[in-house]
Simulated scan of single mutants.
Amino acid sequence: MQQDAIIIGGGFAGLSAAYILARARRHVTIIDSGTPRNRFAARAHGVLGHDGKSGAEILAEARAQLAAYPTVTFIEGEADSAEGVIDDFAVRIEGHGSIATRRVLLASGVEDRLPDIPGLRERWGKTVLHCPYCHGYEIGGGPIGVIATQPMSSHQAVVVADWGDVTLFTNGMSEPDVATLDLLARRGVTLQPGAVVSVDGALDGPAQVRLSNGRSIAVKALFITPDLHIRGSLAHNLGCTLEDSPAGKIIATNAMKATSTAGVFAAGDNARAFGNITLSSADGVMAGLGVHQSLMFPATHS
């Protein structure tokens, strides 16, 4: 049977969109690989009513609730390809063949690609972090490092300074301009020149940031801005326009989360510059509304 919508990705954006469509009694299939972006973090914070739960626990509760809706189907796996036009798409899933659908929602998220510095990957989601609003409070103050990976890293250091005593490791990047240097100084941020060659120490304890100039500086946690890469090739398959964000390419969408390809929508981290659980969920709700409206009024909402 042709689906009203296939949702690629069963994270917070995808499941939030599925709720909207399920409650409108639309037939929805959710394809999910079981590898959410936040799987490296033990706890989720700042999520209304769920503070301190793991992301996996929140998602499991949501899937259980969605499973009660008779028009919702879950498929565990990866979507290999997608093609077609509005009202007549086909999505191929490894091991499940091709499924016909009127609409496609891309909510598979992004991959965080970390700098090639020994010791970073093992600590990702533990003491190497990207969002102070999500994890800064639990650090408890004290020495915190920010490793520069792009020009916006100075801005990140300015923000992180509310959670501790920040050292910005310039990591071979150009020194910030005078105005930025003044702002960093007013925020108490110390600049440390030299390339970062490794991050050493216990994985669950303070880290030693070792520099090419021979110095080693201890910090309780490190913040970085990873390069974001849209997961999978479906946005490309379907001809969706991409746009630049400070951390990488994202799928361009309008206010109702419709992409440049009629009948294709996108929500969550692959379609917004900055995200967390709450923002991704809200993005998914908007996408669900957009998909539903387009099924009723395709000429004005696709």
Rank of each mutant, 00 (worst) to 15 (best):
S233A: 13
V291F: 01
S198D: 07
V291A: 01
H130W: 09
R210F: 07
V28Y: 05
L191G: 02
N213Q: 06
D32W: 11
L181I: 07
L228K: 15
G263L: 11
Y69S: 05
T253F: 04
G164F: 08
A266E: 03
S302M: 07
K220S: 04
V159R: 11
D165I: 13
I99R: 14
E61R: 14
A56K: 15
N270A: 15
N237I: 08
H236I: 15
T253Q: 01
M1D: 00
Q65M: 07
A255E: 09
L289R: 03
Q156H: 15
K126H: 07
A107S: 11
N171Q: 06
L203D: 15
H229M: 11
G52S: 13
D227Y: 08
I277K: 00
D87R: 12
A79G: 02
A79N: 04
G268T: 07
A13M: 08
D51T: 15
L120Q: 12
G205P: 00
V85H: 11
I93W: 02
A79C: 03
Q3G: 04
F74K: 03
D165Q: 15
H301C: 03
G84R: 00
L168C: 09
V146Q: 01
R102F: 09
L183M: 14
L120K: 07
S216T: 15
A161V: 08
S294I: 03
A282E: 13
D4G: 07
A262T: 10
V47E: 00
A195G: 00
F74W: 15
D283F: 00
S33C: 07
S280V: 12
F12Q: 07
A82E: 02
R123W: 09
H130K: 05
G125M: 11
M173F: 15
G205F: 04
Q150K: 15
G232S: 09
S260F: 05
Q3N: 12
V189N: 02
A273K: 08
A273Q: 05
G232C: 11
E94Y: 03
S16E: 10
A5L: 05
T101P: 01
R23V: 06
P246N: 12
E138S: 06
I224N: 06
I230L: 13
L279E: 09
L114Q: 02
V219G: 04
A299I: 11
G11N: 10
T127Y: 08
G232T: 12
I30V: 15
H96N: 09
D112I: 10
G288D: 04
I139Q: 04
G290K: 00
T149R: 10
Q208S: 14
P36S: 14
G84M: 06
N38G: 08
T101M: 01
I8R: 01
V128K: 01
I117N: 00
T127L: 05
G109C: 08
L242S: 06
W163E: 01
L184F: 10
A273T: 13
V209W: 08
G46P: 09
H301N: 10
P226E: 11
G201R: 05
V104P: 03
V160C: 01
S16I: 02
R39E: 03
H96M: 03
A56G: 06
L183S: 04
S153Y: 01
E138W: 10
Y133A: 09
V28L: 03
L242T: 14
H96L: 03
V285Q: 11
M152E: 10
